[in-house]
Design a protein around this nucleic acid. Sequence first.
DNA 1: AAACGCGCCTGGAACGTTCCAGACGATTGT
DNA 2: ACAATCGTCTGGAACGTTCCAGGCGCGTTT
Lengths: 337, 337
Amino acid sequence: MVAVTGTRPGRRPTIVDVAAAAGVSKSLVSLALRGDPGVSEETGARILAAADRLGYRSNRLARGLVQGRTMILGVLLTDLANPYHTEVVAGVEEAAEARGFTVLLAHGRRDRERLEHQLDSLLQLNVDGVVVVSSWLGAAALADAARRVPVVMVGRPREFAPGVDTVANDDEAGARAAVRHLLELGHTRIGHLAGSGSPSSRSREAGYRETMREAGLAEEVLVRPVGDDRDRAAAELLAQGPGAVFAVNDLAALAVLDHAPPEVSVVGYDNTSLAEVTRPRLTSVDQPRAIMGRLATELLWERMGGRTGDRHEVLAPALVVRDSTAPPGERRECGAP
Amino acid sequence: MVAVTGTRPGRRPTIVDVAAAAGVSKSLVSLALRGDPGVSEETGARILAAADRLGYRSNRLARGLVQGRTMILGVLLTDLANPYHTEVVAGVEEAAEARGFTVLLAHGRRDRERLEHQLDSLLQLNVDGVVVVSSWLGAAALADAARRVPVVMVGRPREFAPGVDTVANDDEAGARAAVRHLLELGHTRIGHLAGSGSPSSRSREAGYRETMREAGLAEEVLVRPVGDDRDRAAAELLAQGPGAVFAVNDLAALAVLDHAPPEVSVVGYDNTSLAEVTRPRLTSVDQPRAIMGRLATELLWERMGGRTGDRHEVLAPALVVRDSTAPPGERRECGAP
DNA sequence: AAACGCGCCTGGAACGTTCCAGACGATTGT
DNA sequence: ACAATCGTCTGGAACGTTCCAGGCGCGTTT
């Protein structure tokens, strides 16, 4: 399996090698490999056979260079370990694949500078579009990228970048649904373990406050930002004696569950895979992540088709009720069923 | 911010545009942008300024084409959602970055055919090396890829592919450590919820059987394969009344925890992020994933440097003791501390 | 004074593909 | 019989870089 006849030694075979082996011009090889109808059946078969024999693989760099597009979509992630992100990616991949694109992921590893660097790498590769699954990237960097290639951001940006479409869920509505669920169970003393000032977390907090006010419970509003130390924040919030807690995300909710007596109901946000796995299983607000990913890809597609105006899509989340919520005074279950 | 002077309209600026703007040859621009010492300080500054003004970004396709290498490492993953994988990736990224490589990820989405397709995509991109974090890929596909570019597989292959280095943990040793821990706590009736025949799971089962035999407990050996329905398998295993269970991985361990009375001790394998999050927190065998990722990158590096013989590295795992194991008869804790 | 070395710069040839204009026979239409 | 058309196929020009051989001016050595 070492030296295959017809190939220059030590080099990967090119279209020219295949052409020589099949006794035709390189142009015809190119046509044949792409299945062009203007190639006679017999010659086509011979070319394919030769390519196969030589172990030829097309060189995407060269193709991309001459065509000016690569049929590659780049996905930029802050944090691979975040299950929220990965489900969005699955949606992107599905839609991209259907349109013949290859998806490559670049990873920022929770570091803003690295994130910008990775975005740059993708641009240098001439990807045909970028989906950014991160709120960490600044509007300037995003807008700059959008000047060269379609860019969609999944999530809620601090600031809208011109030329960049966005896909987000309606955080305020999700928060409302969570709080309403607790109200309907009969809770009144509902606290909120809040986020750290990101646009999403602010909307969630606003939804919480609003719903409490509408229920005539403005005095019961109890908010504690989660800060750096989730456990401390959870403990301090619980020290105020709420009957239920709406947490800004699942991890925060877990911290609450950990410190709360079993009568306290807890709702999370994001419906990550954690929610299924913990005991009690966590009631949580689900973002339609796969759909968001698909939609992001469609927005890219539209941009490639020439759309110029910016679009900002907001999707409705849905509450998923599990075992961590119960009427006041009832114990959540714990451990084996 | 629309039409920048000096750029041909509608095209991204190239090195030639920069050259024209700075009044030098394209060759000099190339040298200047790469920081070649043979460029006078003054001219260099002028070129950089021009590049900046035009918003120039180097084209990696063209560079890769002429240099024959891309300074990109590809990582092929079966399953993004698997936290085991993502930590390996972090290790790869760290080591790759230190050597000036960019890491791009391709995702097989738990589909073998897609996995092969993605591998092909990476090869077409002329990546300088591939780390495969998956046991799904056949030896033939791996060997084929290894013929064009260095390939390292992280995990235990069903069959060693020629030309492909591997990095794995010592599953048998890990299993021994887990079982010994249970023995030391005083357990004798130790069951095993086994995997589905992958090389890793077979080694883990072997380690279990061996250790039981050495402890004179050959008669107590109790093995149930996990199959498709984890919950059923766990319930059936528990119906045999073991005092402790060593499970083939964390997810299987969780299924056992779910159905077991609190006196039953449980050990998992892989020490995924789940282990920290469940209650009781799961005792589990940890693979040094980040180190495995780094090592994989180093093996690639060696191959690039010309090594030809195959290397198969096996790293020692370590047991992480948490709350899911206790002496026989004692209750594991549950819920708040 | 010629030769050499050095710092700085340039033009053209790669790299592997696709695109384009057109060549060559054979067939068809008038 | 001649032009037009069609099905196949070809050679060269892109694409945007890097690499290479060398050029020019100037100071230093022989």
